[in-house]
Amino acid sequence: MKILLIGEYSRLHNSLKEGLTKLGHEVYILGTGDGFKNYEIDYNIAPRLTIKNKFFINGVSAFRKLTGIDLHKVEMAVNFKRRLPKLKGFDHIQLINSDALQTYPDYQIKFYDKLIQNNKQISLLICGDETPIVDYNLSGKLKYSVLTPFLEDKSLRKYFKYSLKYTTKSYRRLFEYVSGISNVLITSDLDYELPMRKMGYTTTFIPNPINTDKLKYTEPVIEGKIIIFLGINRLSYLKKGTVYFEEALKIIREKYTDKVEIIVTENIPYAEYIKLYESTHILLDQVYGYDQGYNALEAMAKGKVVFTGAETEFIAHYNLKEAVAINAVPDAKQIVEQLSYLIENPEKIIEISKNARSFIEREHSYIKIAEQYLKAWGLK
């Protein structure tokens, strides 16, 4: 089968491609590489002229203020339109988001309409913000979500403009159009499955694919200091609750000066990011999740003890009897207690590390997950 995956924000589509390729399919990824993360893609539609050309760099912001037109979005539309004539004959196309092309909604509807005319079918993967997800998170019915900081302080609106755009008329129309032409709506973890079901949508839940062949497990060796890693992404700083980790680390640094080493990075490419946490024992991911995101899962595959979403809903869904990650919540004091326990009981780090790898192999193996996608798409 010939398959096109549109969009890449976390390496999810790359791992899915690797699984599908192992199963004998021809797979291509179209996207932007997601800025500084620089993910691998086959067809690049990232804006270059409006980002790298000095003349345009100086004028893009002023032009947007003057006219309301974002030239980055216009350039991405132009780049995709150039690719469009060659995007034919695919047995399946999957969008990583209704806004997968990252240009104006009206443009995207026209482009998707052309894609469905020239290819057999389209599906929508829900693995981040979407209109129903944002609507439900804004309702405040969950004990917490990535929008909790905004609900608690509306002055933070400008930091949540990416999420809130899905509540506008044009993006609602875009989601309705894409969900209408999709042969299946797929959710990647419980943070999206639970809200979609609550909002009345029929979805197919497929866990994130993790390349367990490429990501080798290394059992933690604790001979000297315990190494704790925090990778900060400023774009998702508030949504991940990074401030709680920073507050906890200040206390841990003073409390265990001779027992820990703390590594903090900010906005680095994906390849560099995974190299930097290679030697660490504990990775701090996010506090507002119910399930693990992609970075957490990859770290778990490599044997790290990850502070992330591992709520009761997650434990119940997978019927877990042992800890595979640490459930981090928006409470610095609790995070300090959890870190302290691991520092004082290093054998637990080794135990959770082994549990994490076993869980990833059992529930997230990229080849097994690729087979589930083929079945959901109706290609198997």
Score class of each variant (00 low, 15 high):
Met76Phe: 07
Leu101Asp: 03
Asp106Ile: 08
Lys88Asn: 09
Asp106Ser: 13
Phe80Gln: 02
Lys81His: 11
Ile69Trp: 04
Leu23Ser: 11
Gly19Leu: 03
Ala46Val: 08
Gly35Ala: 06
Ile96Lys: 00
Leu87Thr: 01
Leu49Met: 12
Ser98Phe: 02
Gln94Ser: 13
Asp99Ile: 00
Leu16His: 08
Asn44Glu: 09
Val74Phe: 10
Phe63Ile: 13
Lys54His: 08
Thr67Trp: 06
Phe80Trp: 08
Ile69Ala: 06
Gly35Glu: 09
Glu40Phe: 13
Asn97Ile: 00
Asp34Thr: 11
Lys73Ile: 01
Gly59Ser: 13
His72Val: 05
Phe63Val: 09
Val78Leu: 14
Thr32Met: 10
Ala100Lys: 04
Ile57Arg: 15
Glu40Ile: 10
Gly19Gln: 01
Ala62Gln: 01
Asp106Glu: 14
His72Tyr: 15
Pro85Asn: 01
Arg83Asn: 05
Leu20Glu: 01
Leu84His: 04
Leu95Val: 02
Lys65Asp: 11
Val60His: 07
Ile51Ala: 09
Tyr28Met: 07
Asp99Glu: 09
Met76Gln: 14
Asp42Phe: 10
Asp91Gln: 03
Ala77Ser: 12
Ile51Arg: 14
Asn79Tyr: 09
His92Gln: 10
Asn53Asp: 14
Pro105Gln: 00
Ile51His: 12
Thr103Phe: 06
Tyr104Lys: 10
Thr50Cys: 06
Asp34Lys: 13
Gly89Ala: 04
Tyr104Leu: 11
Tyr107Trp: 12
Thr103Leu: 06
Phe56Met: 14
Tyr39Arg: 01
Lys52Ser: 12
Lys22Phe: 08
Asp34Gly: 00
Ala46Ser: 15
Lys37Asn: 14
Gly35His: 07
Pro47Tyr: 12
Pro85Thr: 01
Ile45Ser: 02
Phe90Arg: 02
Phe56Val: 05
Glu40Arg: 14
Ile96Ser: 14
Lys88Ser: 10
Leu66Val: 00
Ala100Gln: 03
Ile29Lys: 05
Leu23Val: 10
Asn58Glu: 13
Glu18Val: 02
Phe55Asp: 05
Ile96Met: 07
Leu95Thr: 01
Ala100Asp: 02
Phe55Ala: 12
Asn53Ile: 09
Phe111Lys: 00
Lys86Ile: 10
